[in-house]
Amino acid sequence: MTADTLLDVRGLRAGYLAPVLGPLSFALARGEVLGLCGPNGCGKSTLLAALLGNVRIFAGDIRRAPGAVFSLQTQRQPPVAGVPLTGAELLALTGAAAAGLPPALAACLPLRLDRLSGGQRQFLHLWACLQAPADVVLLDEPTNNLDPDGVAALAGALRARAAGGAGLLVVSHDAAFLAAACDRLLRLGGVDDAA
């Protein structure tokens, strides 16, 4: 691994009872946005779980930069009904800064999360993940629930976070978003991936 390499994945085969993806090899560097695309069930979310040690590794190796901190945004938002947590409190809990948040969403910070739209909550969760003090940011279908303005703002936020030195791994079915936001794409097809 070089000094700029945050992740070095070699010959990875991972899954649950049996491998879902692999063998797969790739590296992620500081300042890079890597997009992951492929059909449903090919192992994109499984790869994110493997990087965090949450699924079975059947073969291969995942090397992480020493001391690298990870941040993960999953497809499922935590339930917020009846929880008196505001947007500002969510950001404070994750160590994320509000600076740079699009003005329409900055106005939502004093509001309870259960009073926001699905898209507003999605963007605040994404912002919390992106702005948290992490070296590697993992995003799983981040454009879910976002309107076109939100998708454009997210693409800009990814580029800014990468410019700040983080490495980002983004899973999405949104080809236009991946083309706009990523430096390169890794296409997965499931077991027997070649990279």
Rank of each mutant, 00 (worst) to 15 (best):
F26Q: 09
T74Q: 12
G41T: 00
L90A: 11
L139R: 02
S117H: 06
L48E: 01
P142C: 08
L28H: 08
Q73Y: 11
R64F: 04
A49W: 11
L51H: 08
A92F: 00
E141F: 13
V33A: 11
Q131L: 10
G118W: 04
A59F: 02
P103T: 00
R112N: 09
L36C: 09
A106E: 15
V69N: 05
G167Y: 07
A163R: 14
C108E: 15
Y16C: 06
A106H: 14
A175I: 07
R63N: 02
F58K: 02
L12D: 01
Q73L: 15
L126K: 00
L111W: 03
G164N: 05
C37G: 13
A106M: 08
A18D: 07
D114V: 01
L158N: 03
N145M: 08
G190P: 01
L130C: 11
A27N: 04
L146H: 11
V33C: 13
G119K: 11
Y16D: 07
H173S: 10
A3F: 03
R161S: 06
G119T: 03
A152L: 11
M1K: 06
N145W: 13
P103M: 02
R64M: 10
T94I: 02
L34S: 10
A29G: 09
D114N: 14
V33W: 01
G100A: 10
S172M: 08
P79T: 05
V136K: 07
L178V: 14
I62D: 12
L124R: 04
L51M: 14
H125A: 06
A195K: 03
L91I: 09
L48P: 03
P110G: 14
G164V: 01
L36F: 10
A18G: 03
I62T: 07
V137H: 03
R56F: 02
T86S: 15
G165C: 04
A132M: 01
P79C: 09
D140M: 02
Q122I: 00
L12I: 04
A104H: 03
V9C: 07
L72M: 12
A176N: 05
A194T: 15
A155Q: 09
T86D: 07
D174T: 03
A18N: 07
T86R: 14
D140R: 00
E141H: 12
L124Y: 05
L93D: 06
D174H: 03
N144R: 14
P23I: 06
V191Q: 01
